[in-house]
Design a protein around this nucleic acid. Sequence first.
RNA 1: GUACCCAUAGCUCAGUAGGAUAGAGCAACGGCCUUCUAAGCCGUGUGUCCGGGGUUCGAAUCCCUGUGGGUACGCCA
Length: 566
Amino acid sequence: MIDFKKEIGKLVSKKFDNLNEDTIIELLEVPPNYELGDYAMPCFRLAKELRKAPNVIAQEIVGSIGKNELFEKIENIGPYINFFINRKTFGETVLKEVFEKKDMFGSTDIGKGKNVTFDFSSPNIAKPFHVGHLRSTVIGNSLYKIYNFLGYNSIGINHLGDWGTQFGKMISAYKRWGDDEALNKEPIKTLQGLYVKFHKEAEKNPELEDEGRLWFKKLEDGDEEAREIWKRFVDLSLDEFNRIYDLLKVEFDYYTGESFYEDKMDRIVDLLKEKNLLVESEGAYVVDLEKYNMPPCIILKSDGTTIYATRDITAAIYRKETYDFAKSIYITDYSQNLHFAQWMKVVELIGYDWAKDIYHAPFGRVSTEEGRLQTRKGNVILLDDVLNKSIEKVRLIIEEKNPNLENKDEVIKMVGIGAVIFNDLSNSKIRDIVFNWDRMLSFEGETGPYVQYTHARANSVLGKAEYDITTDVDYSLLTNDEAANIFRLLYSFQNTIITAMEKNEPSFIARHIIDIAQAFNRFYHECPIIVEDKELQKARLLIVYSVTTVIKTGLGLLGIEAPQKM
RNA sequence: GUACCCAUAGCUCAGUAGGAUAGAGCAACGGCCUUCUAAGCCGUGUGUCCGGGGUUCGAAUCCCUGUGGGUACGCCA
């Protein structure tokens, strides 16, 4: 594609010895509305250096450029120089590129040869998967895909919460009250019930706590019975989680949970000792971080056992050694901000210069109008319920509008689940979410179904087309505002993906494809596509083709499927 | 108490690493299906961009400060 910014840079810098291309490009911006052109160059910053008023500078530059075939108009409005790209050229360069690259349009190889690890989803074994877990899962999954699309080699790691004292308690509870039939039928619910019961009973009968600790000790020591029961819990939970991951179409490269690092922590503790980083404090061993304005990072508890920071440090080192990552990204909610800052600092203090390549990508918390989600208080919204309700609502709509749709069930799932994922990815991830059913199940406007619908509708036009898609069209037929808006959005698609990657923010892509969908729907409304005029039809079809291609790619980057029909 | 995050239309949110009159969606009201999918399109209205200072030619955006909300602050993860 033509790099229009660069072309402007060349044009303007040619006339000024003291202004090079890059400074010009730096100055360029997109005007607040398109009546002011495709690019604008404000001249305020040049005023001092050139000792002239900004609007005079703008005028002079415009005067010096003269006619240029890439731009149909270059004019100054006060201190701004506005560049209007020739629409014929614009359409041609963009549409040809989309047609050539197809589903790779927007990709790059900037990440070639670089590994990036993603630590995401990471649910706790034996606990239900609720809407809170959804966030890490879908954000992580989307980032995984975005990085891959930009040439990186993404490595997805599910850091399962599969270790710790609570498993001793679970085993103890299971030994006392376990019911195998119930466990096989409704594993998570039953395990959850056992956990709750244990805590209730332990209030009356404190020695239960000791029993739980004992079982965990046995588990750590490799006791056969303990291992066997634990393994069963893990497998049952994983079956359940995998069912949800299948629904969401989320995959992981590794399921290395906390237990995986059990035998790898000694080495790290020794390393910390060796580096003289460990100090005793209140019976525990910590790394002092006062210099960095943070509370100490506990490495060994006073009973000598490890803690999650120890595990995270160990896992980071393991991952560096195993995958030699260029970046390592952790997707958790922001309540862990301090924890991440602490252990990342410890990795740095050990002397690993790659500590700077570890990123915490925090997101906001989910609550309900009643307050925060608390499993114990029963204030939980299960992901299953959300997905099911969404799917059911989609089913109603499809039964009404398109009852004879082929692969109906499949499409219903795609849309229902897509709605849930899109809802989670369409806003800045740092924002808290107050869960609301009406909002969740709204399928109009800036929603997943809206984007999917636009795609399906465009796709259906392609099905009715009377000619093959070709780039051999008359681009001068595509110079109306509706078409030009689409060109702008397709043109900037790659840039949006790169920014989404740099900021670990999938919502940029969600916003971008909403914009494309809106622009297309206007085009669709204003410009009939299957028209008698052969040349016009071919030209417009190429736009339709490009839009379906790019929306599909964009949805894909969010982890959402794009049905052909709906 | 300390640190970090958030505060933009009735509601949910954008606002591209300071720029031209602050934008969408939802909700409300009014139009548009004998023509490509009406989950759509078009139109109508609203703003002390939390308050107060400051930096700048220019601030929703940067700095300081106050207020409100969230989160975290040692042996859970």
